[in-house]
Design a binder for these strands. Structure first.
Lengths: 341, 341
DNA sequence: TATGATAATGTTACCTGTAACAAAACATGG
DNA sequence: CCATGTTTTGTTACAGGTAACATTATCATA
């Protein structure tokens, strides 16, 4: 009689191991392990016995030993700057739609746009032996680059298709997209276009650059309202009033995202300003709401979910041993005219 | 000369272990381990040497051994039915806002409203030795219940505050909320209120029940339009037309979420139907957009993010060994009158 | 029945950090 | 300079599943 057979009430029964199952059947844990991987490797009478024992004890597989011995977790790390932004929720959805059916687990982390936090989160994700990483932003500290190099796992950077990636980037050209929308508004006769910027991250800076270049190329003077806080509908309204104060003859507003644009648009409606007759308004990203509202919002449609899907697909491909196929994958954006420009 | 000292070019240098660092310094890995946990446990001259070696090799901590030997991962599993729904994005945000500063990692999974998938995802999360689980929905298969019992980790169910929880539930009373909003619309003089339901999950069923009860209590006849597909703005428009066909004198619409309501509202505007004069419209959840739009949407404001935060807080508290304080935590909802009723 | 082949099961070692115990190095006081 | 205490470092074992190798059981055929 082994001690494992004794069940005193004080002893809290911990999660059963393969050994517990094996003891119950009267075989080695190796035999049970074989059964779990391929039942046919085990004699027919044992098959039912083992199956019964597994069921009786409620055995739950344990990946820890495998992670330890093989340094493979079948999990991928996803590191995003924020979870507040709807854009990232859609990216996550895209990633999960690919990663989950492939049998990989997602470890989610975010760093609130702080470089120090980013370092810490990456270290944490690596400490769990994630098999691959999807991160965003294009600039990383030297420490982050070193950690990723040492870890030796595939890394894919998303959101931005311009900056030279660590290994592989999948994103859009934010500058070109902002240029295109600004140019579109100018072509529609707008001259005094103001840019509304929030959350001054790398992508926003790219967009501002595209906007400013387009204005300059057309001999116009850019005006950019900025804040470091997160965007919101109310911020869009606030910005509208600021813009009209600083530049009363403003005839166009291009926002760094749809939230600001919608906020500005509603503020115009409240103030009796006609959109697009008096002021044109354009957003960025093309969330569902922008296409449902009246007037339909002009916006730059970006493939957020596809970006997540593609990132996941390429990551999985590399986990299967394939080399990096394309260093930079530049996804197309689309200028949606809507009715607000 | 040990084999680990040999660095042939063919040999891909894998992630360094504590042993590698120790070898470089000329001590045991135990000493390095001590330094990492508390540098003062190590003599001053060694402190700098070890720090240098760690830096030089770019050592990254490895949680795998600890997970294996202690069966504690410092990770919690979050299992949601879907990532498409904005509600769940906000719940995740709430959870992460608590869990991350506490040094816990989030493992995210979703099951697309399928009970079999839920079983599989829970097994997977448990196989990673998550220390606790936040799951949603209130009904689970026997197998799920057994797995959770065997795993012996704290589990918190969110979204619904009515059904008897496995251990602890944090949510709202969907039926009462739907009753309250229906009653509010009736008090405002509406008689022919139609309910728009999508994604027929448990919570939707509760809401329908609340709506129907309120209608009956007021001597009115309920009419519910249902579909199993996910809700969207366009579905709201489709439902509106269906409703007007089935019941031309419809004077109120109560939607299972804001998306449907906004879709219906815009469809009314397009069709020249005045809201709220001709038809009242109410949504559910109170997303930001509902408060920004014109007219402001009447809606039931639910504390999604707080639900996530609270779930995380209670889970962490239990991970610290505290017992379940309240079996059911019923969070308050709020009827937002808006301008559309 | 003996023989070799094949199928079924068992044994051992390993992955890496750390708790627990052991030993060595060092310091202090008599 | 020894005895004793303290600090610092080393040694051993362990967690649980599985690869790799070893052994035993089974069976068909000579």
């Amino acid at each position: 009689m082994k001690s494992s057979d004794i069940k005193s009430p004080s002893m809290k029964n911990k999660r059963p191991t393969l050994q517990d199952v094996a003891d119950l059947v009267g075989v080695t844990k190796m035999t049970v392990s074989r059964f779990l991987r391929n039942p046919d490797q085990v004699s027919v009478p044992l098959q039912t016995k083992i199956a019964d024992a597994l069921e009786e004890l409620g055995y739950i597989p344990n990946r820890a030993p495998d992670i330890l011995s093989k340094s493979k977790s079948h999990a991928i790390g996803v590191l995003l700057p924020s979870l507040t932004n709807q854009v990232f929720a859609e990216v996550i959805r895209g990633i999960e739609s690919i990663v989950e059916p492939a049998g990989y687990q997602t470890m989610l982390a975010h760093y609130g746009y702080s470089k120090e936090a980013e370092e810490a989160r990456i270290a944490t994700l690596l400490s769990y032996n994630v098999d691959g990483l999807i991160i965003s932003e294009s600039y990383h500290t030297e420490r982050v680059r070193k950690m990723l190099a040492v870890a030796g796992i595939p890394v894919i950077e998303i959101m931005d298709s311009v900056s030279p990636p660590i290994e592989q980037a999948i994103g859009i050209d934010n500058e070109a997209a902002a240029y295109a929308m600004t140019d579109f508004m100018i072509k529609r006769g707008r001259q005094k276009i103001v840019y509304f910027a929030a959350r001054m991250d790398q992508r926003t800076l790219f967009k501002i650059k595209g906007y400013e270049t387009a204005m300059h190329d057309n001999g116009l003077t850019p005006l950019c309202l900025k804040t470091n806080s997160a965007s919101s509908f109310t911020l869009g309204a606030t910005f509208l009033h600021d813009a009209l104060q600083q530049q009363p003859d403003t005839d166009g507003i291009f926002c760094t995202n749809d939230d600001l644009a919608i906020g500005a648009l509603y503020a115009c409606q409240k103030a009796g300003i006609k959109v697009p007759q008096d002021i044109s308004i354009a957003g960025f990203h093309g969330h569902d709401i922008s296409r449902a509202m009246i007037p339909r919002l002009a916006t730059v449609i970006t493939p957020r979910e596809e970006m997540g899907r593609l990132a996941a697909e390429h990551l999985l491909s590399r986990l299967q041993g394939n080399p990096v196929s394309q260093t930079i994958i530049d996804l197309p954006f689309q200028i949606e005219a809507g009715e607000s420009v």
